[in-house]
């Protein structure tokens, strides 16, 4: 196509970079937390990654998805971290691939739209369980009280719900 003959990207200035970070921050936070397994380590990891990303933003091919690129930066940064602190472990490639399958080229609001669509497809009980714990911020014990079920049953229900959601998100790729 003639239009694609040469690419001229918009200026990647700090403001645009910050906007992109803001648009992707929640998804990236989730991702970093899974790698680092702790919120505070994840926060440090994120911050380091954002700075590295900003430093090498010239290498970012703007025709690619920003979130995907940043997840790559986060992975590399995490590997570096693991080399330095031997007790931490890097997830193996298969797992990383499965994590990647959940994301598509999209900022957070679209990711959450997709997630909401997937949630809407769950059976009512599962939807209720998610709403009661995540949205309303209850512990599984408290939520179990509210939902009049046992905590272990609720945890099981949530587990199945999460796995259904993962499958839905991973399948729910756009046709292109």
């Amino acid at each position: 196509m003639q239009a694609a003959a040469h690419n001229i990207e918009p200026v990647m200035d700090r403001e645009r970079f910050t906007d992109l970070i803001t648009d992707h921050h929640r998804g990236l936070t989730a991702y970093a937390t899974v790698l680092a397994k702790s919120q505070s380590t994840a926060n440090d990891l994120l911050q380091d990654s954002y700075i590295v990303a900003w430093k090498s933003v010239g290498k970012f091919d703007q025709s690619r998805d920003f979130g995907c690129w940043l997840r790559g930066v986060i992975r590399n940064k995490w590997r570096e971290h693991c080399r330095r602190y031997k007790r931490e472990t890097v997830l193996d490639d298969d797992v990383l691939e499965r994590l990647e399958a959940v994301f598509i080229d999209e900022p957070d609001n679209e990711l959450f739209h997709r997630l909401s669509d997937c949630r809407a497809k769950l059976p009512d009980l599962m939807q209720e369980a998610i709403c009661c714990t995540y949205d309303e911020g209850r512990t599984s014990d408290d939520a179990a009280d509210v939902l009049k079920t046992s905590a272990s049953a609720l945890r099981k229900r949530l587990e199945r719900a999460r796995s259904a959601l993962r499958e839905c998100l991973s399948q729910n790729q756009p046709s292109n």
Binding site: T18, T29, F112, Y134, R166
Partner: peptide, 29 residues
């Protein structure tokens, strides 16, 4: 993988809060 969904659900619950870019990061940027 399920941990990721867990984290995403937590993030989704907070999605209406504005995303706070930490001051230290702003400074570094």
């Amino acid at each position: 993988e399920d941990h990721l969904i867990d984290e995403l659900l937590k993030q989704q619950a907070e999605k209406d809060q504005p995303v706070e870019i930490p001051e230290s990061l702003k400074k570094a940027l």
